[in-house]
Design a protein around this nucleic acid. Sequence first.
DNA 1: AATCGGATCGTCT
DNA 2: GACGATCCGATTG
Length: 185
Amino acid sequence: MKLLKRSFYARDTVTVARDLLGKILVRNTAEGTVSGMITETEAYGASDDPASHAFRGMTKRNAAMFGEVGRAYVYFTYGMHHCLNAVARDDTAEAGAVLVRAIRPLRGAETMMRNRKRDRAAGLADGPAKLAQAMEISRDQYGMDLTRRADLFIADGTDEAIRVLAGPRIGIRHGTEKQWNFRLA
DNA sequence: AATCGGATCGTCT
DNA sequence: GACGATCCGATTG
């Protein structure tokens, strides 16, 4: 399993969002290893994207979106949920990140079920906050380097051709005309 | 199967 | 002081 290189993330955010489908998200904890194939992503831009946390410039919370690509941007929302992004943008953008919305569990499904307090494998990590809870991702992972084989990283998936469906992003009020949600067919 | 509302708090206005 | 890049359980059809 090869790690995705920094250069993978140094491209247009929308392109990276599409290309992350089928890749493998891996999380190592004291409990063991949990992993899954990325099945849904969303691209978020900078001052040109009213749906993005970076729309109104840099703040303490969204600073990672302006920082080094290939690192994790984790945010807390609705008073109880964490969500994971991979920082990605090309040279022309001042900020950008890809929200990882869903995975298909590969390793550690038992651990994920325990983390989610569910007794069935279905619906374990098919939503951004579910994913974070299943994989024990919180602000402790803010800024982590996803290109190193450590606590949290992303590796290459299959070389098989992948069918991608594009649509509007979920749960936003502005920028709904952009088709920046991507999922595996 | 689809819809509705409550939970809950950090962040920005 | 308002409001989320959400989830879940309850209710209704």
